[in-house]
């Protein structure tokens, strides 16, 4: 069980490294698909079927939109890392960030319980009162009964993002 997850996440790391270094943007996007579809298989292994269904469709739509953008603009990625002086500055910034995050990670990892030995605090109540909510799928019960106000907020965020896309892409209303 755990070994399959380790294999999947190593595959995802390799795919993401290739995707960030590909010469052609189209192959970069296709290699980015490895990360998303690896996440689908990992969700199935972790007993999260809702997430696996939604992630596979979302990944396909993301790839369609990204490929549509690249086909209509340009394929090439003409760049060399480590040529200018600003790259050195970026490298220093990256190392500082990695150091800070690593310190935080090393501090936090002691608090977490080991993989597979999680104890539920809040969700235990949700599972016990699932009959009261009337939903056999406990994830939907949480989304629309126990935390419905949260779902309303998430739907509003989605609406706002769509309004942002329509505003950025509109071609009228600006007088030249």
């Amino acid at each position: 069980m755990e070994i399959y997850l380790i294999i999947m996440i190593i595959l995802m790391i390799l795919g993401s490294i290739y995707s960030l270094h590909a010469k052609d943007l189209l192959s970069a996007v296709v290699a980015y698909g490895i990360v998303g579809f690896g996440l689908v298989i990992s969700f199935l292994l972790l007993y999260a079927p809702d997430l696996a269904i939604v992630q596979v469709v979302v990944e396909i739509i993301t790839l369609v939109i990204m490929i549509a953008v690249i086909v209509n603009t340009t394929h090439k990625d003409e760049k060399k890392i480590f040529t200018t002086k600003s790259s050195l500055v970026n490298l220093v910034v990256l190392l500082i960030f990695v150091g800070v995050f690593f310190l935080m990670f090393a501090h936090i990892i002691g608090v977490l319980s080991y993989f597979g030995q999680h104890t539920m605090r809040m969700a235990g109540v949700y599972i016990d009162s699932a009959y009261e909510a009337g939903s056999a799928n406990i994830v939907t019960g949480i989304l629309f009964h126990f935390r419905a106000y949260d779902t309303l907020g998430e739907a509003t965020v989605l609406f706002t993002a769509v309004i942002g896309v329509l505003t950025v892409l509109r071609q009228y209303g600006k007088k030249n």
Partner: peptide
């Protein structure tokens, strides 16, 4: 398994 992170992640994927 814990259903609470699954419910939170489900909306985060779509957003």
């Amino acid at each position: 398994v814990d259903p609470l992170p699954q419910a939170m992640v489900l909306t985060a994927i779509v957003i």
